[in-house]
Design a protein around this nucleic acid. Structure first.
Length: 259
DNA sequence: ATGGCCTGATCTTCAGGA
């Protein structure tokens, strides 16, 4: 089966490309982030016509995550148990479900904005809540993975110019240690192949011609447990989907599983 | 040499993204 994760930067704006990509890629399960819609606005009918069930955690113009599946969708959980609030409310940044043989989380980790910003402390709290939420499944025998926009580049190799990011969010030791703590629960970083160039970046800012210059970052990650990673046959970043008019600023990360 | 974007809502301007 083929699963994928994709920060679509508005499912409304991306719907034509999303439907075309689901068909062309043959994806069975898709983890979505930044749907930027309310639950009511989510295009569940169009997706159902394309053959996919939807599970959605979304509440407006920011954030929003979802799972699409054509191989079953059950035991849906909205949000992180005991997840931290930002300002007054919990934001829709996580959703999990069982899709055929695998249990998955689709996550949109807070950005952090600046290291001195309250959003950065919130980001670290959120990652710790994620660790606690997935620990049991990560150590379990059944195939399990956390996929999404982690908003952290795991190593300096995951940004096009590490010096440029000195002191910025996404590369700080504390953020990377939070990822290491996740891995310590039994998860491994499933490294995708790049379809071009030497590094599998997944995000290129819209500004400053970052995509044509390949000034990207690898921040969309697939963290799988032992049973999941043992089933991985191939993984790649579909950079073709970052091209052209109407593209998201993130490309899908695809994982093929022998399950 | 420099700077170059996109989205949705509060809608001709802004917050947020990373």
């Amino acid at each position: 089966m083929r699963i994928a994760t994709w920060n679509v930067n508005s499912i409304t704006a991306r719907l034509p490309r999303l439907l075309a990509w689901l068909e062309s890629s043959g994806t069975d399960v898709l983890c979505l982030q930044e749907t930027k819609c309310t639950a009511e606005q989510f295009p569940a009918d169009a997706l159902r016509e394309a053959g996919y069930e939807s599970a959605v955690n979304a509440n407006g113009r920011w954030n929003g995550v979802a799972l699409l599946s054509r191989v079953g969708l059950s035991d849906i959980v909205l949000g992180l148990p005991d997840g931290p609030a930002y300002e007054t409310a919990q934001e829709p940044r996580a959703i999990s479900a069982t899709c055929g043989p695998v249990r998955l989380w689709s996550v949109y980790v807070p950005n952090g904005r600046e290291v001195a910003h309250e959003h950065y402390a919130y980001k670290l709290r959120w990652l710790e809540a994620l660790r606690k939420a997935v620990a049991a499944d990560a150590a379990g025998p059944a195939p399990f993975a956390v996929l999404g926009d982690f908003n952290v580049a795991p190593t300096d190799e995951d940004v096009w110019d590490a010096a440029l990011f000195e002191g910025a969010t996404h590369v700080t030791p504390a953020e990377r240690e939070a990822l290491a703590a996740l891995r310590a629960e039994g998860l491994s970083d499933v490294m995708p192949r790049p379809l071009k160039y030497d590094r599998p970046y997944t995000f290129w800012d819209y500004r400053e011609l970052r995509f044509p210059k390949n000034k990207g970052m690898r921040i969309d990650l697939v963290y799988g447990n032992a049973a999941f990673t043992a089933a991985v046959g191939d993984s790649y970043v579909d950079r073709e989907e970052r091209k052209g008019k109407g593209a998201s600023d993130h490309a899908p990360v695809v994982v093929d599983l022998d399950l």
